[in-house]
Computed example of a mutant assay.
Amino acid sequence: MLRAPAVAAAGGALALALVHVRDPHVDGAYGFCPFLVLTGLPCPGCGGLRAANLLTRGDVAGAVSSNLFAVVLVAVAAVAWSVWFLRRLRGRPAPFLTWSARTVTIAGLLVVAFGVVRVTPWGAWLAP
Protein backbone atom coordinates (compact mmCIF):
# COMPACT_ATOMS: atom_id res chain seq x y z
CA MET A 1 0.00 0.00 0.00
CA LEU A 2 2.81 2.43 0.81
CA ARG A 3 5.28 1.04 -1.73
CA ALA A 4 4.56 3.61 -4.45
CA PRO A 5 4.87 6.67 -2.17
CA ALA A 6 8.05 5.21 -0.66
CA VAL A 7 9.60 4.60 -4.09
CA ALA A 8 8.63 8.11 -5.20
CA ALA A 9 10.15 9.60 -2.03
CA ALA A 10 13.35 7.61 -2.50
CA GLY A 11 13.59 8.74 -6.13
CA GLY A 12 13.07 12.36 -5.15
CA ALA A 13 15.61 12.11 -2.35
CA LEU A 14 18.18 10.57 -4.70
CA ALA A 15 17.59 13.30 -7.29
CA LEU A 16 18.01 16.01 -4.66
CA ALA A 17 21.13 14.30 -3.31
CA LEU A 18 22.63 14.28 -6.81
CA VAL A 19 21.84 17.97 -7.33
CA HIS A 20 23.28 18.73 -3.88
CA VAL A 21 26.55 16.88 -4.55
CA ARG A 22 27.08 17.81 -8.22
CA ASP A 23 26.85 21.59 -8.25
CA PRO A 24 24.81 22.90 -11.20
CA HIS A 25 26.42 26.34 -10.75
CA VAL A 26 29.43 24.94 -12.63
CA ASP A 27 28.93 25.59 -16.36
CA GLY A 28 28.16 22.38 -18.23
CA ALA A 29 27.79 20.25 -15.08
CA TYR A 30 24.49 18.90 -16.45
CA GLY A 31 24.92 19.85 -20.09
CA PHE A 32 23.28 22.88 -21.60
CA CYS A 33 19.70 24.00 -22.15
CA PRO A 34 18.97 23.53 -25.87
CA PHE A 35 16.37 26.32 -25.84
CA LEU A 36 18.88 28.74 -24.30
CA VAL A 37 21.60 27.71 -26.76
CA LEU A 38 19.30 28.09 -29.79
CA THR A 39 17.46 31.28 -28.81
CA GLY A 40 19.61 33.00 -26.21
CA LEU A 41 16.53 33.17 -23.98
CA PRO A 42 15.99 31.21 -20.77
CA CYS A 43 13.29 28.54 -20.90
CA PRO A 44 10.86 28.17 -17.97
CA GLY A 45 13.14 25.46 -16.55
CA CYS A 46 16.40 27.38 -16.78
CA GLY A 47 17.77 27.83 -13.28
CA GLY A 48 15.71 24.95 -11.92
CA LEU A 49 18.70 22.77 -11.06
CA ARG A 50 20.44 25.71 -9.41
CA ALA A 51 17.24 26.42 -7.45
CA ALA A 52 17.04 22.78 -6.30
CA ASN A 53 20.71 22.86 -5.30
CA LEU A 54 20.19 26.01 -3.27
CA LEU A 55 17.07 24.56 -1.61
CA THR A 56 19.12 21.55 -0.47
CA ARG A 57 21.52 24.02 1.14
CA GLY A 58 18.70 25.94 2.87
CA ASP A 59 19.09 29.07 0.71
CA VAL A 60 15.44 29.76 -0.16
CA ALA A 61 16.09 33.35 -1.27
CA GLY A 62 18.85 32.21 -3.62
CA ALA A 63 16.62 29.43 -4.96
CA VAL A 64 13.81 31.90 -5.64
CA SER A 65 16.21 34.16 -7.51
CA SER A 66 17.39 31.20 -9.63
CA ASN A 67 13.92 29.98 -10.61
CA LEU A 68 10.76 30.96 -8.75
CA PHE A 69 8.68 28.46 -10.72
CA ALA A 70 10.93 25.55 -9.70
CA VAL A 71 10.67 26.52 -6.02
CA VAL A 72 6.88 26.66 -6.25
CA LEU A 73 6.90 23.32 -8.09
CA VAL A 74 8.98 21.70 -5.34
CA ALA A 75 6.55 22.99 -2.71
CA VAL A 76 3.52 21.75 -4.68
CA ALA A 77 5.19 18.36 -5.18
CA ALA A 78 5.91 18.06 -1.45
CA VAL A 79 2.29 18.84 -0.58
CA ALA A 80 0.97 16.46 -3.27
CA TRP A 81 3.25 13.68 -2.03
CA SER A 82 2.17 14.28 1.57
CA VAL A 83 -1.52 14.07 0.67
CA TRP A 84 -0.85 10.94 -1.39
CA PHE A 85 1.09 9.31 1.47
CA LEU A 86 -1.49 10.17 4.14
CA ARG A 87 -4.39 8.93 2.03
CA ARG A 88 -2.57 5.67 1.37
CA LEU A 89 -1.67 5.36 5.04
CA ARG A 90 -5.35 5.68 5.98
CA GLY A 91 -6.33 3.04 3.44
CA ARG A 92 -8.12 5.39 1.08
CA PRO A 93 -7.78 5.14 -2.68
CA ALA A 94 -5.16 7.65 -3.70
CA PRO A 95 -3.78 7.67 -7.22
CA PHE A 96 -0.86 10.09 -7.28
CA LEU A 97 -1.76 12.21 -10.28
CA THR A 98 -5.35 12.43 -11.35
CA TRP A 99 -5.56 15.76 -13.09
CA SER A 100 -8.40 16.91 -15.24
CA ALA A 101 -7.77 18.30 -18.70
CA ARG A 102 -8.60 21.72 -17.29
CA THR A 103 -5.89 21.43 -14.60
CA VAL A 104 -3.30 20.31 -17.16
CA THR A 105 -4.26 23.21 -19.45
CA ILE A 106 -3.99 25.75 -16.64
CA ALA A 107 -0.62 24.34 -15.54
CA GLY A 108 0.65 24.49 -19.12
CA LEU A 109 -0.52 28.08 -19.49
CA LEU A 110 1.23 29.02 -16.24
CA VAL A 111 4.50 27.52 -17.50
CA VAL A 112 4.20 29.40 -20.80
CA ALA A 113 3.28 32.65 -19.02
CA PHE A 114 6.25 32.30 -16.67
CA GLY A 115 8.55 31.65 -19.64
CA VAL A 116 7.25 34.70 -21.50
CA VAL A 117 7.22 37.08 -18.53
CA ARG A 118 10.78 36.26 -17.48
CA VAL A 119 12.19 37.43 -20.85
CA THR A 120 10.36 40.77 -20.77
CA PRO A 121 11.78 43.91 -19.15
CA TRP A 122 9.25 43.90 -16.29
CA GLY A 123 9.90 40.21 -15.57
CA ALA A 124 13.68 40.34 -15.90
CA TRP A 125 14.01 39.76 -12.14
CA LEU A 126 12.63 36.23 -12.80
CA ALA A 127 15.46 35.34 -15.21
CA PRO A 128 18.40 33.39 -13.81
Rank of each mutant, 00 (worst) to 15 (best):
M1Y: 15
R3A: 09
A4I: 15
P5Q: 03
A6P: 13
V7R: 10
A8T: 14
A10H: 12
A10Y: 13
A10D: 00
G11T: 09
G11Y: 12
A13S: 11
A13L: 10
A15C: 10
A17E: 11
L18Y: 03
H20R: 00
H25P: 07
H25F: 13
V26W: 15
D27G: 14
A29Y: 11
Y30D: 02
Y30A: 00
C33N: 07
P34C: 02
L36Y: 12
V37A: 09
G40V: 11
L41K: 05
P42H: 05
C43T: 04
C43A: 01
G45K: 08
C46A: 03
G47S: 02
G48F: 14
G48D: 10
A51E: 06
A52R: 04
N53C: 11
L54D: 02
L54T: 01
L55V: 05
G58T: 02
D59L: 03
D59M: 05
V60Y: 15
V60P: 12
G62S: 06
G62L: 02
A63S: 02
V64M: 13
V64N: 00
V64A: 10
S65W: 14
S65Y: 10
S66K: 07
S66H: 14
L68A: 01
V71I: 03
L73A: 14
V76A: 07
A77S: 10
V79Q: 02
A80K: 11
S82V: 13
S82T: 14
V83C: 06
W84R: 01
W84N: 01
F85T: 08
R87K: 14
R87L: 12
R87W: 15
R88E: 04
L89Y: 15
G91C: 04
R92Y: 08
P93C: 01
P93A: 01
A94E: 08
W99D: 09
S100Q: 11
S100Y: 12
A101T: 13
V104T: 13
I106L: 03
I106Q: 07
L109D: 04
L110I: 04
F114R: 04
R118H: 00
V119S: 01
T120G: 02
P121A: 00
